[in-house]
Every structure is written in C-alpha cells, then in structure tokens.
C-alpha cells in the first residue's frame, strides 16, 4: 500500500468495523520508499476471506492484495523472549535455544534474551518447551510472508 500516514489505521479500522479478526499484522516500508508492505494474518470462511480481500482492495491506498495461502509461500515471524536464567537453568535454556536454532542476544547474571525466527507455530512450540515459570517477557512481530519461487509481488 501507499506509504502514507493513516493507511494502516484504515486497514485496522476496516477489520474492526466489519468484525473481521486480525491474528497478526506486520508492516514496514519496502525498497521503494513510497510503498509499504503489510502481511496480515486472518481467518474465516471462504466467503469472509473473499469479502476481506474485496474490502481491502476498495481502500484507496491499498495498491494490491494477494492471498498468500492460495499458493506456496514462506512465512516467518521474529520473537524476542526474556527468560530467567540462573543456576542449572542457564545450560538447559542454552541447549533449547540451539535446538530451535535461535540465539541469545543479551545476557545478565539473572537472564537471557533470546531471538528466534520461524513460523508462528515454531515460536509457539518454543514457548511450550521452556518452563513457563522462567518466561519473563515475550514480544513477537507477527508473521511476514512471501511467495515461493521466482514469482514476485510487484506493483
């Protein structure tokens, strides 16, 4: 969509006004600074998704809408997690981070801050795997998506 003030609130407003749910939404400018790319995760029946697509297309600032789930696509989400890490937990958590191919990006004597990228379900799995009492804080970006192969979404 056009990288203009207010465009994001139009999308968000559309979803709340029409009762569609937003599971996640991530947006940032693209290599063309006049455009932003938004990945929005939503769910609903085929009819609802058809309406969502049509309504989004109606917004003046939206340039193009595609449903990535119509074809092969890749989805990634970034999560930062701060966990309590003392004593024997420190090694245990380190191992788990390695298994999930994350990395520890900040360390204190009481905590680790972990960076993890993957599909949303992989991030959920990580949270499920760590002892919930050690999780101090999590922050997630929501998914970003792109089509597989040579196909590109360009304006």
């Amino acid at each position: 969509m056009e990288n203009e003030a207010g465009a994001l609130s139009r999308v968000a407003g559309l979803f709340s006004a029409r009762g569609y749910n937003i599971e996640s939404l991530s947006v940032a400018p693209t290599e063309d600074a006049t455009l932003s790319r938004m990945t929005l995760v939503t769910s609903g029946s085929d009819e609802v998704i058809e309406q969502v697509t049509k309504q989004l297309n109606k917004l003046i600032e939206v340039v193009k809408v595609i449903d990535l789930s119509d074809g092969n696509h890749i989805e990634r989400e970034l999560m930062l997690v701060k966990v309590r890490a003392v004593g024997a937990d420190r090694d245990e958590i380190k191992r788990l981070v390695d298994i999930f191919r994350g990395c520890i990006i900040d360390v204190t004597d009481k905590s680790y801050t972990i960076e993890l990228t993957g599909t949303s379900s992989k991030l959920d799995a990580f949270i499920g795997a760590v002892d919930s009492s050690t999780v101090l804080e999590t922050v997630r970006t929501g998914a970003s998506g792109i089509g597989r192969g040579d196909w590109t979404l360009k304006v």
Binding site: A5, G6, S9, R10, G13, A17, I60
Partner: peptide
C-alpha cells in the same frame, strides 16, 4: 476529523 469520519467516507485526506 480524519479519524472520526474514516468509517463513513469513501476516502479522506488531511
């Protein structure tokens, strides 16, 4: 104004 009228205009512009 842009916020208040957003859901009831085809478009609005500040």
């Amino acid at each position: 104004t842009v916020g208040i009228t957003r859901p009831c205009v085809k478009h609005n512009l500040l």
